[in-house]
Design a protein around this nucleic acid. Structure first.
Length: 591
RNA sequence: GGGGGCGUAGUUCAGCUGGUUAGAACGCCUGCCUGUCACGCAGGAGGCCGCGGUUUCGAGUCCCGUCGCUCCCGCCA
């Protein structure tokens, strides 16, 4: 391998096969860097030693595939290259074969400036030759392998489930696959193997896992691809803690495989607390939490500021930002996405000037240093009281809107000033379990309750009686595992009793008939002796992305899709022939 | 569905207030060069300024539309 030779190999015969990474032609002396996935080694060809090989070496161009046979030679001390692992040796070629020529690639794997996304995706095979991509794909392999090993060692079976399955209108949009044999009917690609893994529990495979592709036809983001890979697992008879231990175990193994030590168990936090402290259900613990500073103001101050006296006033603190110019301060306002009438005070200097006492108390409450940035988010005086169905919750919908607005701004500011506070430096992995999610969320558009996690999640034992009387107050036995502000995975203890499952469907506004037609097979399965069970699924791509220090999932997926869900290399999706459509009994509507 | 950014040589980019022949670096081609390693030196080729329209004496530059890439909001049980 091109990256394997070391000083101890000096004198040995060796064959190097790989790509021409770079050629340095000094006339009668030619150096060729040969590259494969393991690294790069310098091959030397001199006119003096072998004219025929030298002539051939003059023909070499970037990305030619070659084989070089020769002797490993220790380099003279003044020609050692300390920048590469093989820098102490070189291969003196006595045979050189061009295995394949290459057209001039649109960009070179050895280029220092990265080509744009379109180029990289269209010529993905060239992009993947780059060191960074080779590293990421290898990392992904090691992480997946460590997880498999760990779960197998804990008695889990990896069991496959169908890709061609049944469409369910709940949740994300399905990718559909038309049936030829049953014209007019469709399979759906799974959004997750949720029901299959639950049925595996009913089938007696009490510890299941799968590293499995899932499909969701929704709009993309940097951390969302239409097909992605989940580490999916399910177990029978678990307390949530058993699931958490299992996840902590395989994540510890995965991070170790990537060269990082992490500490388990992870801290835990109630959903309500996460919202109150961070304004989001996936808090990034690397940045300071909010401070509630309403009590720092005197009542008349709040009135002067047109701040709602009964809603939270939140101080966001970002450390070590330093003095902001007028221009920089003006950049903060557009970053604020106000929900439910939330208001932003981005100029803390003005608070200091007009309300010096309050400002002082706020700084104390935030434990703010002089260099820290503080902005305030509050409700506006106009925010009226609402008769929202969830208004009895610990965090009311009005409060939630303010917390959420502040939460998004906190993350945005943290990113904008990351170079200044330095808290996002690699290697700081702050895991967290978020628990006790509300069971239902109110869909304002449809005026109905929808499952916050999914409709097979078990309600909290203590809240069973509120399922019908007060759905807003029902907590779910659901949990998310969060890392540095990214939701890595989500799971729950499931419903194993058919009567409760029926109640949930009822609370979701589903009639008996609807439930039966959508999930009849599952309701029936529940009746044949279902053990209590629960599980979780984690995004493998996201884990590897964080470990790779990448900004986008595309960096850790060999063949990803664009933001418009296209594959630029194979040019998919495409129209199909009329004959294919006829076979399937499908007509495409003309626009 | 909505909002922001980008689109100029093979690639990455610069191109000011609209002005005459559109630049740089890397890559590519030719020649020279025996210790380079982002080799060096000399020379050269290479442009539908994404596409279509508009304003103007004149458009890479202004305006409208459109396409592509990207980030965010909505959406993602």
């Amino acid at each position: 391998m091109c990256g394997a030779l070391r000083a101890s190999d000096a004198g040995k015969k060796a064959v190097l096969m790989g790509w021409v990474n770079r050629r340095r032609d000094l006339g009668n002396l030619i150096f060729v860097d040969v590259r494969d996935r393991s690294g790069v080694t310098q091959v030397v060809i001199s006119e003096e030693a072998n004219t025929a090989i030298h002539d051939k070496a003059e023909l070499l161009r970037n990305e030619f595939v070659i084989a070089a046979v020769g002797t490993v030679k220790l380099r003279d001390s003044n020609t050692i290259n300390k920048n590469i692992p093989t820098g102490e040796v070189e291969l003196v070629a006595d045979e050189l074969r061009i295995l394949n020529e290459a057209k001039h690639p649109p960009f070179l794997p050895s280029d220092t400036a990265l080509a744009n996304e379109e180029m990289r995706l269209k010529y993905r095979y060239i992009d993947l030759r780059r060191d960074a991509m080779q590293f990421n794909i290898e990392l992904r392999h090691k992480v997946a392998l460590a997880i498999r090993d760990y779960l197998a060692s804990q008695g889990f079976f990896e069991i496959e489930t169908p890709f061609m399955t049944r469409s369910t209108p709940e949740g994300a949009r399905d990718y559909l696959v038309p049936s030829r044999v049953q014209p007019g009917t469709f399979y759906a690609l799974p959004q997750s193997p949720q029901l299959f893994k639950q049925i595996l529990m009913i089938s007696g495979f009490d510890k299941y896992f799968q590293i499995v592709r899932c499909f969701r036809d929704e709009d993309l983001r940097a951390d969302r691809q239409p097909e992605f890979t989940q580490i999916d697992l399910e177990m029978s008879y678990p307390q949530p803690e058993r699931v958490w231990e299992t996840v902590e175990g395989f994540l510890t193994a995965a991070f170790k495989a990537a060269g990082h030590q992490i500490n388990a168990p992870f801290p835990r936090m109630d959903y309500d607390e996460a919202i109150r402290l961070y304004g989001i259900d996936k808090p990034d613990l690397r940045l300071p939490a909010f401070a509630e500073v309403r009590d720092c103001f005197a009542a008349p101050d709040l009135q002067t500021l047109a701040v709602h006296p009964d809603l939270p006033v939140i101080a966001i603190r970002i450390p070590k930002v330093g003095e902001l110019s007028r221009k920089e301060r003006d950049e903060i306002k557009p970053m604020f996405n106000s929900k439910g009438g939330a208001r932003l005070f981005e100029d803390f200097k003005r608070i200091e000037k007009n309300f010096p006492e309050a400002a002082k108390k706020i700084q104390e409450k935030c434990a703010a240093a002089a260099e820290d940035l503080i902005v305030l988010v509050s409700g506006s005086a106009q925010s009226g009281t609402q008769d929202h169905p969830a208004s009895k919750r610990k965090v009311t919908p009005q409060e939630l809107a303010i917390y959420a607005s502040a939460g998004l701004l906190r993350v945005a500011l943290g990113q904008k000033y990351s170079a200044r506070h330095g808290l996002f430096l690699r290697g700081d992995f702050r895991f967290l379990w978020v628990t006790n999610f509300p069971m239902f969320e109110y869909d304002e558009a449809d005026k109905r309750w929808v499952a916050a996690h999914h409709p097979f999640t078990s309600p909290h034992d203590d809240d069973m009686d509120k399922l019908e009387s007060d759905p807003a107050m029902v907590r779910a036995l659901a949990y998310d595992v969060v890392l540095n502000g990214t939701e890595l995975g989500s799971g729950s203890i499931r419903i194993h009793r058919q009567d409760i499952q029926r109640k949930i469907f009822h609370a979701l506004g589903m009639t008996e008939e609807e439930a039966k037609s959508r999930f009849g097979f599952f309701l029936e399965a529940l009746e044949y002796g279902t053990p209590p069970h629960g599980g979780i699924a984690l995004g493998l791509d996201r884990i590897v992305m964080i470990l790779a220090g990448a900004e986008s999932l595309r960096e850790v997926i060999p063949f990803p899709k664009t933001a418009a869900a296209k594959d630029l290399m194979v040019d998919a999706p495409t129209p199909v022939t009329d004959a294919q459509l006829r076979d399937l009994g499908i007509a495409v509507a003309k626009k």
